[in-house]
Structure formats: C-alpha cells, structure tokens
Design a protein around this nucleic acid. Structure first.
Length: 336
DNA sequence: TCATGTTTACAAGATA
DNA sequence: TATCTTGTAAACATGA
C-alpha cells in the first residue's frame, strides 16, 4: 500500500478499487449521486495518478458502473439538462466490504430479480456467466429508470438506513461499516448532526459516530449523507414528504425493498484482518461542512420500514431465473 | 462527433 | 485447484 502523501497518493496508484473510488465520489457529493463526468472529476482531483491514461481507467470505471449491482443509474430530471445519468449507490448494497476495508470486497453485491420491480425497470442486461469470471458474472443491477427522472439522492441513504434498522443490514459505505471497529469515542465531541439524523431514520445510533470516515477514506470528507442530501433537496425545491425522499424518489418504494423485500444478506466469510489504525492514515484531504448541516425533515424517512419488523431474509419461492440488471430484484450479497 | 452506457472477453491476483 | 474479484481492452449502441 503506497504511503499516502499529505493529501493524495501523489502519482502512485491508490490502493482503492474503482468501485471504492466511485463510491467515494458519490458519497462525497451532497446529493449522493453524481454524473459520470463528476465522478471522473472527483477522482482526478484527488488522485493525480488518474490524471493520466484517462481513456483506460475511465473505460474501466464505466465498466464497473454498469457491471456492478451496487451502482444504480438515475435519470436526470427535466430541469437538469446534460449528458448521461446520475449514478448512486444502491440502497441495499450492504456490507460488501469487510469491516470497512475497501481494498477488496469480501463479497460482491448482487441484486436478484423478484420483488423489486418497483425499483427497477429498463432493459435486462448481463448474460449470466459471461464476462468477469463465469459464475461470478451474475450481474443483475437494479435500475431506477422507471422512476420519474428525479434523483435518488438521500432516498438511497434513507432506504439503506431503514434497511439497517430493520434487518441488521449495513450499507458498505454507511458510517458504521466504514468506521468499523474504531468509531467508539472518536466523535464524541463532533457535534455532528449525523447521529440525530440517523436517529430520525431509525438507524441504530451508537451514540458516537462521526468523521472517522475521513480517516478511513482520507480523501473523502464526512459522509453526512442524509443531512446534506436533505438540505440540498430542500434548497432545490425538490418534493420532500411522506411519499418522496429528499429528491423526489418515492421512498415508499425504496423502503419497501428494504423492509419487505429481501435485504442484502451479508454472508460471513471469515474474520477480517483489521484495518490499519486510523491514526496511521493521513488527514482528510477535504471535509464537508457536516457540522453545520441541519437535520433532515423526518418526513424523508421511511418510517414504515423503520417500524416494521425484520424482513424475511430470503424468499425461497423467489425465482432464480437468469439475472440481469433489469427486472424485479432482490438484493443479496453473493458469496459462494 | 463525442460522451455515455452496455456487454463480452481475457488475464492477474486473492482466496476458499 | 477452483472460484472470485478486479483491471483492462474492445466492440457496439445510444443520445446530446
């Protein structure tokens, strides 16, 4: 692992996979979604290594976006002209990484087709077994393309949080996963709104969470996603209410997937070597003004999901038909 | 035309 | 050794 510099890995290739880099960029954004060009920009700004050979790595990155279920494509709103769609993290892409280690996922996030038709539509894609290693290539990513062209934004985070609260699911980029074992006591004095936000979400708030995130992802600021997204949504005049998340996404639908559908099922594999102590990592290269973020309106939260009992983990009757990124979906974490 | 997005294919390294 | 994840390349389609 290259020795990080003051704020970047200089010209060395960062030890992060494209999935991690993309997730960083998305999480760093206020709305928790970015167009492809901004993902490029984020990576190039923070990792000089990626200022060269752009064709190569950008092609790889696009491949990852399309291929990996943990990324979802969100159509632009009519008032957001521009090329390409927004990309966000799938609400259910939980626990892909082990204990917040982003160097290599412990399992691949996969979305099964079943009861998530409301979440995903569009063309089915991804011939099973093709590409990336035969059986590994069971790509079936959810697309939100049948959603009105609103952003997913914090709705994804909200759904993820709701899922976490109801099924023990943890978003891989959720603070709990990212900070892993080291969160205790770190954020006590942070005063960040995150805890209150998580509380609003029904998220199990351990009492002290915070910008430890920036220690694990030194190039990313605090991921106060929900608060930031809700604030951004409010500022943007996006419909926010019981039916819609901060960006107009029908949260009910999203939360349905979390509470009644099949949440991501982390499959324990093995004990994970602990991450290097966070103190060994460089200071964050950037930080978000998270401490000044107001808490989101509770109405953006999928309270139904939060209040519902734990969802059934698996539906044995669910069809196991060839999967693709379109169509009804279950979210599972695949490991064999 | 170019950026974006999808899909297939192969190779290397890690892991069970 | 088999499987899985990741990286890379390339062909192709689509839309601004």
């Amino acid at each position: 692992m290259p020795r990080p510099g003051k704020s970047s890995y200089s010209d060395q290739k960062p030890p992060y996979s494209y999935i991690s880099l993309t997730a960083m960029a998305i999480q760093h954004s206020a709305e928790k979604m970015l167009p492809l060009s901004d993902i490029y920009k984020f990576i190039m700004e923070r990792f000089p290594y990626y200022r060269e050979h752009t064709q190569r790595w950008q092609n790889s990155l696009r491949h990852n976006l399309s291929f990996n279920d943990c990324f979802i494509k969100i159509p632009r709103r009519p008032d957001q002209p521009g090329k390409g769609s927004f990309w966000a993290l799938h609400p259910d892409c939980g626990d892909m990484f082990e204990n917040g280690s982003f160097l290599r996922r412990r399992k691949r996030f996969k979305v099964l087709r079943a009861d998530h038709a409301h979440l995903h539509a569009g063309s089915s894609k991804g011939a099973p077994g093709a590409g990336h290693g035969g059986a590994a290539a069971v790509g079936s990513v959810g697309r939100l393309s049948q959603f009105p062209p609103y952003g997913l934004g914090s709705a994804a985070a909200a759904a993820a949080a709701a899922a976490a609260s109801t099924s023990g699911f943890k978003h891989p980029f959720a603070i709990e996963n990212i900070i892993g074992r080291d969160y205790k006591g770190v954020l006590q004095a942070g005063g960040l709104p995150l805890a209150s936000v998580m509380h609003h979400l029904g998220y199990p708030v351990p009492g002290q969470l915070g910008n430890v995130v920036s220690s694990v992802w030194p190039h990313v600021g605090v991921m106060d996603s929900v608060a930031a997204a809700a604030a951004a949504a409010a500022a943007a005049g996006v419909p926010v209410g019981p039916e819609y998340g901060a960006f107009g996404v029908p949260v009910k639908a999203l939360c349905h997937s979390a509470s009644q559908g099949l949440p991501a099922v982390p499959v324990p594999i093995k004990p994970t070597p602990a991450l290097p102590p966070v103190t060994a990592l460089p200071p964050p290269a950037l930080s978000l003004p998270a401490a000044s973020q107001p808490p989101p309106a509770p109405s953006t939260v999928c309270s139904a999901a939060a209040a519902s009992p734990a969802a059934p983990l698996l539906d044995p009757t669910a069809p196991s038909a060839p999967e693709s990124k379109g169509g009804p979906l279950h979210s599972v974490l695949v490991h064999s």
